[in-house]
Simulated assay, not measured.
Amino acid sequence: MLIIDSVSKDLGEFALTDVSLSVGDGEYFIILGPTGAGKTILLETIAGIYSPDAGRIVLNDRDITDVPAKDRNIGMVYQDYMLFPHLTVEENISFGLKSRRADSDFIRRKVQESAELLNIGHLLHRYPGTLSGGEQQRTAIARALVMEPDALLLDEPLSALDVKTRESLRGELARIHDATGTTIIHITHNFEEVFDLADRVAVMHRGSVVQVGTPEEIFRKPNSDFVADFVGMENLFCGEGSPDGTVMVEGLRIQVENGMPGPVSLAVRPEDIHLSKTALPQNGKNILPGCIRTVRQAGGLVRICVDAGIPVMVVLTRQGFEEAGVGSGDAVYLAFRPSAAHVYSSGAPEGD
């Protein structure tokens, strides 16, 4: 549906370098990456705010690389809403349709439908300055959707909202996507949004796309140290892989599912590790004896650092920690399945 083919754009401080992506019709596609990775430039290049220095953009089999932004039928919503303060909610939503000189009855009907979809039908007479952040963002999304765009671009649409409103609007976005089938490309730093909304995810770093996959693939099977670190794969070790499905890490032999020979990185998510004060049956698992070095409360979770010959981070729920009955200085056993130990080549690209 949307093809981004080898697109580059140099804006000095920010740049895109040979970015290629494809987004399917009706897909909810999320782009992750640190500040300065090029995420917003990519969205604005898709929207037509910038023309690429190289490459092309194809939407529904139509090359739109040089098509003006107003003729692309792409909607864009920023985190700061960008509503017209002197216009009512109704006038903000209808602005694009009026620019197209649509029939007044058609405009009235489409505005009402869009407002009802976003649960702001009762706010049509109000001005943006009298609305909450969540209501303003709903208005901005309604203004984009009323145009029936081929693709909707969302630049961190929930980041300026409080936690409760963010959770509510996240659910609204999922419902709207299901109801409309609109292709959505969404930038975020929030991992909850990824798991609640995304069909697929792209990770950007230094202006390049370094990995694309499902949320499960990105968070559990990173292809580089950068991605592993970015998605919170805290247990990240260098080792020597063997074709027999083991990796040697500082004298420890660890069974893995996707073994490969040579220098490798091995990553294990902290929540995939079981901790016990008593010896555990192996049952095909990796069993590491160790000693607890630190225990730190983190909201409803407890973060435990264990010295098992290598420093291993374990995350338990508060209840799981209490049931384990452990504390700093205790001898413990760690267990994790070979399938939880993801291995990739140490020479994996970093997006430089």
Score class of each variant (00 low, 15 high):
1 M>R: 13
3 I>N: 04
5 D>H: 02
6 S>A: 07
13 E>L: 12
15 A>Y: 07
19 V>Y: 05
23 V>F: 12
23 V>Q: 10
28 Y>W: 07
28 Y>S: 08
31 I>C: 00
32 L>Q: 04
33 G>I: 05
34 P>R: 15
35 T>R: 15
36 G>R: 07
37 A>P: 02
38 G>H: 05
40 T>H: 02
40 T>G: 01
41 I>G: 00
42 L>D: 11
43 L>G: 10
55 G>V: 09
56 R>I: 04
56 R>G: 03
58 V>S: 12
62 R>N: 11
62 R>E: 12
67 V>M: 14
70 K>R: 09
74 I>R: 04
84 F>E: 01
85 P>Y: 02
85 P>S: 07
86 H>R: 06
88 T>M: 07
90 E>F: 12
92 N>R: 02
93 I>N: 01
102 A>I: 06
103 D>M: 13
109 R>W: 03
109 R>N: 05
109 R>H: 04
114 S>T: 04
117 L>A: 03
122 H>D: 13
122 H>P: 11
127 Y>Q: 14
133 G>M: 03
138 R>Y: 13
143 R>L: 00
143 R>T: 00
145 L>T: 01
154 L>Q: 11
156 E>C: 08
160 A>R: 01
162 D>E: 00
163 V>Y: 05
163 V>W: 03
165 T>E: 04
165 T>S: 12
165 T>G: 02
168 S>Y: 00
170 R>V: 09
175 R>I: 05
178 D>E: 09
179 A>P: 05
180 T>A: 02
187 I>Q: 01
189 H>P: 10
190 N>G: 06
192 E>K: 11
195 F>N: 03
195 F>D: 04
195 F>H: 08
196 D>P: 01
198 A>D: 06
198 A>Y: 09
198 A>W: 08
201 V>L: 07
204 M>W: 14
209 V>Q: 14
212 V>F: 08
215 P>T: 06
218 I>P: 03
220 R>M: 05
225 D>V: 09
229 D>R: 14
233 M>Q: 07
241 G>F: 08
241 G>K: 13
246 T>D: 02
248 M>S: 12
250 E>H: 12
253 R>A: 08
256 V>R: 12
268 V>I: 13
268 V>N: 01
269 R>N: 10
270 P>L: 02
277 K>C: 04
279 A>F: 06
287 I>Y: 08
289 P>D: 04
290 G>E: 04
291 C>E: 12
296 R>K: 00
297 Q>A: 12
301 L>W: 10
306 V>D: 14
309 G>L: 09
310 I>W: 01
314 V>F: 14
316 L>D: 05
319 Q>I: 15
319 Q>E: 11
328 S>W: 00
329 G>N: 07
333 Y>L: 02
336 F>V: 07
337 R>Y: 10
339 S>M: 02
341 A>G: 06
